[in-house]
Design a protein around this nucleic acid. Structure first.
Lengths: 107, 107
DNA sequence: TATATATACCTTGACAGACGAGGTATCGTG
DNA sequence: CACGATACCTCGTCTGTCAAGGTATATATA
């Protein structure tokens, strides 16, 4: 069973930031990683991913640069900023709170 | 800190059904209960609540009837159906899976 | 050589759920 | 009689998701 987008909604940015905390990465790879980590239960669709990248960049939470691949398709890498790290901590705490609240409500 | 609507999004129906599992209730009361249970962290706005009621009723998960209050404002009560109980179990399992998945993704 | 698949990026427009802002009516209290 | 609490409701807007479409490169296969 896969997780519906409405449940995932609101967590995309946190999920992306979490990945970039570990290491710089690029869209296609991030997408793959998410599916792998969750055994194909979560899939952020490409369009969703890219619109999240735009928001994160506009907010100053990530920076981007082009990879220097000499072969294969070019890659646009993303790296998390200091502001992004702080934002992640907020996202993370929000998630913990939401989790506790929903757990209380769903008996 | 209150929980953003995007995080709650997708759980409204499950939260309502969970309440109706305990006992029949009406909009205003359900709203109050949710805030109380979560120490004012979650608040489903009225418009949100009522649109969720419509969806749940259309899906056959709840039934409604008017209370027989002789004093005070009339109340529209909601009760969960058998189908609603089954749907709740699905929502609940989805939540458990989503929780596990997001916990894996947010380090 | 042609074609398919995987990698890698991107945009547009539509959809659906949340909610702000507005409305109605009843009752108790100062 | 004004006001706050209780109780219901609708309309229109906003925002994140995603289906559907596009581009280009490299490799394997027929």
């Amino acid at each position: 069973m896969s997780i519906t987008s409405d449940i995932l909604r609101g967590h995309t940015e946190a999920i992306i930031l979490a990945h970039l905390l570990e290491q710089d990465s690029y869209g296609y790879q991030i997408n793959k990683d998410i599916m792998k980590k969750t055994e194909n239960r979560c899939e952020l669709k490409e369009a969703t991913l890219y619109s999240a990248f735009r928001r994160l960049e506009q907010a100053g939470y990530i920076r981007t640069y082009w990879g220097d691949e000499t072969v294969g398709a070019r890659r646009r890498y993303y790296s998390i900023t200091e502001e992004g790290r702080r934002a992640y901590q907020v996202y993370k705490r929000e998630w913990e709170e939401a989790k506790a609240a929903i757990d209380k409500l769903l008996i």
